[in-house]
Simulated scan of single mutants.
Amino acid sequence: MALLNQQFYITLGLYAGASACYFIGYRKDNLLQVASVLTFIGFLSNFILWISRTVMSGRLPLTNGYEFVLSFSLITVLMYLIGEYKAKIKRAGGIVMLINTLLFLSIVLLMPGQINTVSPLMPALKSPWLTVHVITAIIAYSSFALAAGLALLQIRNYTPKFEVVIYKLVASGFAALSLSIVLGAIWAEQAWGSYWTWDPKETWALVTWIIYAVYLHLRQEGWRGENANTMVVAGFILVLFTFFGVNYLLSGLHSYALLL
């Protein structure tokens, strides 16, 4: 168990170091290369944690807060590395890796006991719908995280190429979020007897969906620039509230993050 704690803090340190190198190294190519290497090593370390949790629990780590953040960070960094290689979005590296650093810090502050503890699943979570519902949500959240990182850069230094990348990321995330909501509704009907209960998580997921739907609609109408990018950032803030706010401020049927 001590090894898992060490691995966790190593991953946190790698992500923090990568973020710092990206921010400092915008005009120093050598430091940017170091940042990319730290990001890749951090991803591998995160993956080791993810595999270890899978082995410990005997299932994919998708249930409580620690497991969700572990998977969320893993997919976000993977998508960023692919984007850095294919779309040349290295300028967003500092912000994206800072997001992942803060996600890992949230584990330290809000759920430290979950790192080394695995508890039996609640009856409602013992469903094949769990995997597809949560994985599609994670893909959506990761897409929105990358889009927000690029959008923050766009607000300060507009680049037409990144505008297209942001749009594609939001569109992909929106499709994944839509699928996640539909799958969650099917699962809810089986678990609780109703497709929609206006639970806080459902409500805020719907609000987030509407924000991104408005952005995509306005984008089709030719909307560009600072206001559009501000909406993308605002959408991601809602994504974070949908997870952290609902689980730690608002109680409801979806408040599983506190579970060990």
Rank of each mutant, 00 (worst) to 15 (best):
L3G: 15
L4V: 13
Q6H: 14
F8W: 12
F8M: 04
Y9L: 08
L12D: 15
L14T: 05
Y15L: 14
A16C: 11
A18H: 04
S19Y: 05
Y22E: 07
F23T: 03
F23K: 02
I24M: 11
I24W: 13
G25D: 11
G25M: 13
G25L: 14
Y26R: 15
Q33V: 10
Q33M: 11
V34S: 03
A35G: 08
A35N: 09
V37E: 00
L38C: 05
T39Q: 07
F40R: 08
G42F: 06
F43I: 00
N46G: 14
F47Y: 13
I48H: 10
L49I: 04
L49G: 03
I51E: 10
I51D: 08
T54G: 08
M56C: 01
L62F: 07
T63S: 12
G65Y: 05
Y66P: 08
F68C: 00
V69L: 14
S71E: 03
S73G: 07
S73Q: 09
S73M: 04
I75R: 04
T76E: 07
L78H: 03
L81E: 11
E84G: 12
Y85M: 12
K86I: 09
K86Q: 08
K88E: 04
G94K: 01
L98Q: 04
I99Q: 06
N100W: 03
L105H: 01
V108F: 13
L109D: 07
T117N: 11
V118I: 15
S119R: 09
S119A: 14
M122V: 00
P123R: 06
S127L: 07
P128Y: 14
P128M: 13
W129F: 15
W129N: 14
H133N: 10
H133C: 04
I135L: 14
I138N: 02
A140W: 00
Y141M: 08
F144L: 10
A148D: 06
G149R: 01
L153S: 01
Q154L: 00
I155V: 13
R156H: 11
T159F: 08
K161Q: 10
E163M: 00
V164I: 04
V165Q: 05
L169K: 01
A171T: 03
A175C: 08
L177K: 02
L177H: 14
L177W: 06
S178R: 02
I181T: 11
A185T: 14
I186F: 15
I186R: 09
A188T: 09
E189D: 15
E189I: 07
S194I: 15
Y195T: 07
W204V: 06
W204K: 01
A205Q: 09
L206E: 02
V207M: 05
W209C: 05
I210E: 12
I211A: 13
V214D: 10
L216Y: 06
H217S: 01
H217I: 09
R219A: 12
R219N: 12
W223T: 05
W223E: 02
W223P: 02
W223R: 08
E226Y: 05
N227H: 09
N227F: 02
N227L: 07
A228I: 08
N229E: 00
A234P: 00
G235K: 10
G235R: 00
L238P: 00
V239W: 04
L240Y: 02
F241H: 03
F243T: 05
F244I: 10
Y248L: 06
Y248A: 03
L249H: 12
L249D: 10
G252I: 06
G252P: 08
L253T: 12
H254K: 07
S255G: 04
L259A: 11
L259P: 09
L259R: 15
L260H: 13
